[in-house]
Nucleic acid binder design. Structure first.
Lengths: 420, 420
DNA sequence: CATATTCGGTCAAAGGTCCC
DNA sequence: AGGGACCTTTGACCGAATAT
């Protein structure tokens, strides 16, 4: 504990690229403090931006500045350095949930070191090399900070009353099996809701218009599937659509119920086993949404940072339940796979002319799709174009990709207006 | 944590201003005493002006420094700490005037403790119990049955010396650009190594033979890509193959270098930013491998549990560095996507008859592939069959899936024998 | 060039261990 | 069932290098 010197400084983090960026990403403090120090957790939300500067984020002792990436006291600073230098490996005699505060910080070194890491300390910052903090900063982009409350509000704004009101076993049998048209109609509704949802996230609205379009397009299929899975959590043998139709596991058209089956098996069941909470779902959706790669994003680093914050919030929302965070993230690969299969099914339906598809569906779900399936998670657009130059067979795709849709752009412009 | 620098360092006679100290004195009834002031006590024992620094002011033994506010020997230091920690209350069997010196200090605890207080020791200086600094460091942290050491051994068994030995900038330019045949050859090698790798995991070998085949098949493409990405970490503009050929970002065939580009952008760069460790890589590979869904597994719960353990080990391997675990898991969706694109490219190559493919490649990479892309992460087999009953167009797929390959089964039988 | 920040290092004084 | 010789860890304070 030091007696002298009060340090006050506003946090501003700028981004360069790649490695620098990642390091910086780790540095950004997340506001809420979950485990310990209930006092600071209460005050941290808005009132005390300086609290994180003057208080050690590990033990809540008085901080002497930022050390190794986290605002900390000299004790935790030295402890972290020694632990890393000497390559110490501690073990917790209890449940790895020891409280680390000023009084008890020496009682469990495992939990203390763990909290150092969780507070943002990086072992790369230790050792002889001096950590050159931002030697160069790019365009001076300011990156907003996602907050769980904003995400929950966004979720609430797209919650559908009818689907929630229907009690489990009673009404479900009364619901009608969806025909292809019903499915498409539901999809369109959900896509509009997705746009609506995104509009509630200021950080999204601050992105360049092209990036907003790209983000919405790229993973729209995954959002449809994720939403359907969430909606169908109480159902065992069917998928509940947003417009109150259902898709049974058998009895619907083959292509449709195959996707429905996979949603049940690979998504609904795991989510039900986990008993996913609203907070977790909100964070998971956001993590899916801000996918930094596989896009032609103008500012991929910003998106990357937003996803980073989203998954930090997700981890927080899991309340440190062992393995829960990992299980939730491991939902994403099958989600992607199922979504991709749905898109393929749509492609097929479109090719066969089985149904009339709305232009919104065409644009958001199939807009980037090609026969070779770059649709769901395509490579970098420039490369795509570069290669397409040499490949006449999909030159039409290029124009589709580079074309910014009127309808989507309009919708997004409205969203942008809402926030600025 | 120090209150003021002066009390402890300069004078131990400041006890009189220390209210706590007075309280402490109350704990032990003080009677008339001949040696009142600690200073006089110290000086009286031996007439040395600096004797207070070298002599224990309690028992006049050799002092080892200041302890708890008084210059003292290790014996009195330890005695005072134990007395305070255990909240001992002693009593004098005589008249509380026992002589406390080096020889007789253990004859009356009451008088010894009282003299500790009189010499200036403060009970506040005794801290809480700390974490054991036990010499036998039992790390190992074996979660369940999978152990990190087994995974590391498995990794080591498939490490390729030539690829690792080649220094970065020197040899890379000398390496030849792979033709399609070279790529296939490398793939085959890597697939065999994958089987070899799996054989090193006892939990894998204990699975039913069909499940082993399924696991190996289902995500073999992802393992190829993951391995290539890891191997290419030091390379900026090319993908390094296992057989020492390279795939440049441009200059190779279009289809090939498109996949190569995505590997670089979506996998190599993030992994390089994270500076993934060997442990983490081993755990990540295992997490990918034990995919419980999207299979026709006999015992999906076992596989699910194995993946659970794998990602717990991964989390442990990240040392709880903030956000690192999440960043690593979020590598998996793009990994899946890139792997799927590679499989599609292979399909295309096969259809166009561009190259002769080994049967192992056909079986492991394309064995489950269909035009609608169930290959990478197919649905449940029973459903697949059920639907196929009604759909003649892919009935041949059913037989392929339900057919247990001879070559793979043989390889795996050998593996099984190794372990039983 | 001054100031603020954050590295690395030092060492008194805490801690713990373990034979006696 | 402590005592105490011996060793490790802690953290307040310091100087140095760097960004501002």
């Amino acid at each position: 504990m030091k007696l002298t010197g009060t340090i006050l400084k506003l946090e501003y983090t700028h981004y360069s690229t790649d490695r620098e960026h990642l390091n910086n990403m780790m540095l950004i403090p997340l506001q809420t403090d979950t485990t310990d120090s209930p006092a600071s957790a209460a005050a941290s939300s808005l009132s005390q931006p300086d609290g994180s500067r003057t208080l050690c984020s590990i033990c809540a002792d008085r901080a002497t500045g930022k050390h190794y990436g986290a605002s900390s006291c000299d004790g935790c600073k030295g402890f972290f350095r020694r632990s890393i230098r000497n390559n110490h490996s501690y073990s917790c005699r209890f449940n790895r949930k020891c409280i680390v505060d000023k009084d008890k910080r020496n009682q469990c070194r495992y939990c203390r070191l763990r909290k150092c890491f969780k507070a943002g300390m990086r072992k790369e910052a230790v050792q002889n090399e001096r950590d050159c903090t931002n030697t160069h900063r790019a365009k001076g982009q300011t990156v907003g900070t996602l907050s769980i409350s904003v995400l929950l509000q966004a979720e609430a704004s797209v919650q559908q009353i009818p689907a929630l009101l229907s009690p489990r076993s009673h009404d479900i049998n009364a619901k009608k099996t969806a025909c292809v048209g019903d499915v498409f109609e539901s999809m369109k509704q959900q896509l509009l809701l997705l746009v609506e949802w995104a509009k509630h996230i200021p950080e999204f609205c601050s992105l360049p218009i092209d990036d907003r379009v790209t983000l919405l397009r790229t993973h729209s299929a995954e959002h449809l599937i994720l939403g359907a899975a969430r909606r169908s959590l109480p159902c065992d043998n069917l998928i509940l659509l947003g417009n109150d139709f259902v898709i049974p596991m058998s009895g619907a058209e083959v292509e449709v119920s195959r996707v429905a089956f996979r949603i049940q098996e690979e998504l609904v069941k795991p989510l039900r086993d986990l008993d996913i909470t609203d907070q977790e779902f909100a964070c998971l959706r956001t993590t899916v949404f801000f996918a930094p790669d596989c896009l032609g994003l103008e500012s991929p680093q910003v998106v990357r940072h937003l996803r980073f914050q989203a998954h930090l919030l997700l981890e927080e929302a899991t309340c440190e339940q062992r393995g829960r965070f990992g299980e939730l993230l491991l939902i994403l690969p099958p989600l992607q796979s199922v979504a991709w299969q749905m898109v393929e099914t749509l492609h097929l339906a479109k090719l066969l002319g089985e149904a009339r598809m709305d232009s919104l569906l065409l644009e958001m779900l199939l807009g980037e799709g090609t026969k070779t399936g770059d649709g769901l998670c395509s490579g970098n657009d420039q490369t795509q174009e570069q290669h397409n130059d040499q490949r006449a067979s999909s030159s039409n795709l290029t124009s589709v990709i580079s074309h910014v849709s009127t309808s989507l752009a309009n919708t997004l412009s409205a969203a942008h207006t809402d926030w600025h």
